[in-house]
Every structure is written in C-alpha cells, then in structure tokens.
C-alpha cells in the first residue's frame, strides 16, 4: 500500500510518507475506524527510521486525521472530513510558501507573483459567482 520514499528528491521523507498516508485515507483505502500499520511495520516495510513514522503519526493526530491510542495503535478518525479549519489554513500556508519560494527562485519578482495570484483569485471568484 505504501511505497518507499525517494531519498534523493529533496522533499523530506516524512512529507513524502505523510502525503501517501493522507492519500490512502482520502481515497478510502483505509477507512474511518480502521487501523494504520504499526510504527514498527511501517519502518520495516519502508526501511525508514521508526522515529520518522512516529513524527508523521503525531502530526496526523494534531491535524485531526488519525487518533493514536496508546498501546493499541493509530486509527483513522471517523470524522476526518471535519478536519479543523486551523489545520487546513496551516496546510494552505505551507503550500503557498513553497509555491512562492519556488517562483522567486525561478526569478519572478514579488510583484509579478502577486499579480498572478490576484488574477487567479479573481478568476476563481468569478467562477463561484457564476455558479
């Protein structure tokens, strides 16, 4: 179900694995109430450090996606669709940060990026209004 991370990609391992887990949950491959593999199983299967797995599980718990019951394991939360607004905003911030940094690195100026984002937001807004 989970594939080994790419250690050369520059994307941190825990981000890669975390995204795989979120994907599997969103696609309903592991359903609410069902259990995620144990830290040990995950570490052995993906050949990664168990503390990395723990870090991912902790973050997923903070984001309200899973529940870690001590001694029995990590379970997908029943209401994972009710992901808190705060967590969404936090996630969104990271995505935007990365994108902006990426565009800056590619040589776009702050003003150019702002214009692109504003145009896109306006665009999306019009689509919403027209619906």
């Amino acid at each position: 179900m989970f594939t080994k991370p790419n250690h050369q990609s520059g994307i941190p391992i825990y981000v890669q694995i975390k995204e795989q887990i979120i994907h599997v949950i969103e696609k309903g491959v592991i359903k609410p109430g069902e259990q995620l593999p144990s830290v040990r199983t995950m570490a052995e299967q993906l050949v990664i450090n168990p503390n990395t797995v723990m870090k991912i599980y902790r973050e997923l718990e903070v984001e309200g996606i899973i529940e870690v019951k001590h001694g029995s394991g990590a379970f997908v939360k029943t209401k994972h669709s009710g992901k808190s607004k705060a967590a969404l905003v936090k996630q969104g911030t990271v995505v935007v940060q990365k994108t902006v940094q990426n565009l800056l690195n590619k040589g776009l100026s702050v003003d150019e990026i702002r214009r692109i984002v504003q145009a896109e937001l306006q665009n999306q807004g019009e689509i919403l209004i027209n619906l």
């Binding site: 830290v39 040990r40 570490a43 052995e44 050949v47 450090n49 168990p50 503390n51």
Partner: peptide, 14 residues
C-alpha cells in the same frame, strides 16, 4: 543490505 537495514530499523523500533 536491505535486509540488514530492515533489521536495524526494527531494533530501533524496540
């Protein structure tokens, strides 16, 4: 080598 690494992460999990 991969088998060894698996064993090592298992030991770390312990």
């Amino acid at each position: 080598n991969e088998k060894l690494l698996k064993v090592l992460v298992g030991l770390a999990a312990d």
